[in-house]
Amino acid sequence: MSGKSTMLRTFRVIVMRDLTLAMRRRTDLLTTLFFFIIVVSLFPLGVGTEKAILRQIAPGIAWVAALLASMLALERLFAGDFQDGTLEQMLLAPQPLSVLVLAKVVAHWLLTGLPLVLIAPLVGLQYDLSAGSLGIMMLALLIGTPTLSLVGAIGAALTLGLRGGGVLLSLLVLPLYIPVLIYGAGAVSASVTSIADTQPYLMLLTGFMIFALVLAPWATAAALRISSE
């Protein structure tokens, strides 16, 4: 039995498990998505509906809303498994814990990050964005939100089972989201003047994603072991 194929199999089983669980509790999925939609819709009501202003603030608002939505969903990443003891089984699995963590984060992103990417055109309509900017926004969200899930997983693991864990989680995780916010929103802003200018932004976002992909599962695994002692 080769180690690599069992590892892949475990990875696949965990991803499928979390997707199945989510499909049997669909409301959880929709709450994150609607949270995003509501936050984005509130700003024009508060700031005013002048098109020029809306176009200017759209990138920042879409990204801040994405940050908050992804963070809200994080609380549930390990909490359920922690309560019913399945997390303990994962800690005792004969595969590297970071692989299992990565599987859980991938499933989490498919359920909470990807829907944000797909709903982005709605933001485009509300904020009068051009088709080009909208494309860049979707692309930036596609590259940026996995980093949010990966980094956020560390915070979720550290605050596992704590009272008031949700608020604490935001305190720990939001400052670490700043680079993604700056370049994610920057890419969309740059696209207004020139689509070609957005390339370095997207490259940086990709770089962050790779960096997080390498380090975050390891840190999350360490945090889970600390939290479940």
Binding site: P175, I178, P179, I182, Y183, G186, Y201, M203, L204
Partner: peptide
């Protein structure tokens, strides 16, 4: 973080 704050426009 420091780098991204210093250089918001790459």
């Amino acid at each position: 973080i420091y780098w991204s704050v210093n250089c918001p426009d790459p």
